[in-house]
Simulated scan of single mutants.
Amino acid sequence: MAPQRPVIDVMLILERDGAVCLAERQGTGYADGMLNLPSGKLETGEDVYDAVIREGHEEIGVTVEREALRAVHVMHFRNPEGQARIGWFFTARHWDGEPRNMEPHKCAGLQWHPIAHLPSHTVPYNALGLRHYAKGEPFSTHGW
């Protein structure tokens, strides 16, 4: 049997005034119209810190220093299509810049929502990770 080769994702949790920053997907062909955390996949040569820093800058224009990041949840996830993923959820204690939509071709805009009251159209993978983070749970599996 071949070894599993999951996709490695990173998600950035920015919190302000009791709410978390979510982006509305558009024009991507996947989960368009749904809300998700600023996120993406690791690129060749990156570690998870480099990737989440890059994604924060590319997607919402913020600069986050490695020392400001804290890994708060790791999820082994199998999506409905059967693809295995490992999701790293990070909070940032502080960041430079005001979050703004840097990818209007992929994002309809940013919204802030309380973690305890996420909209029903939040991407399930992200919503699960946020719920585990809110409970202080460092690891989970879903879809197996």
Rank of each mutant, 00 (worst) to 15 (best):
Q26I: 15
P99R: 12
A108G: 00
E65C: 03
A71Y: 05
L35V: 09
H105M: 14
H76F: 13
A19S: 08
R25K: 15
K106I: 05
R70E: 10
A71F: 05
R85F: 07
D50G: 02
F90L: 09
L42F: 09
D50F: 01
T44W: 06
R25A: 07
D17Y: 07
G61F: 07
A92M: 10
G29V: 06
V20S: 06
L35E: 04
T91V: 10
A51H: 03
G109V: 02
L12E: 05
E15G: 13
E67S: 11
R78Q: 07
E55S: 03
G61T: 11
F90A: 07
G87R: 15
M102P: 05
L69Y: 05
P38F: 03
V20C: 03
V74L: 15
F77P: 08
E81I: 05
D50L: 01
T28G: 07
D96I: 14
H94S: 15
Y49T: 01
E43F: 11
G56V: 03
G61R: 02
E46Y: 13
P114I: 12
E98P: 06
P114V: 15
G97C: 05
D50Y: 00
I8V: 15
H105D: 02
L110W: 01
V74D: 00
E65S: 09
A31K: 11
L12F: 00
M34C: 13
E67R: 10
D17V: 12
G27F: 10
D32V: 12
L14W: 03
P104C: 05
G82C: 08
A23C: 13
C107T: 06
R25F: 12
R100M: 10
I8A: 11
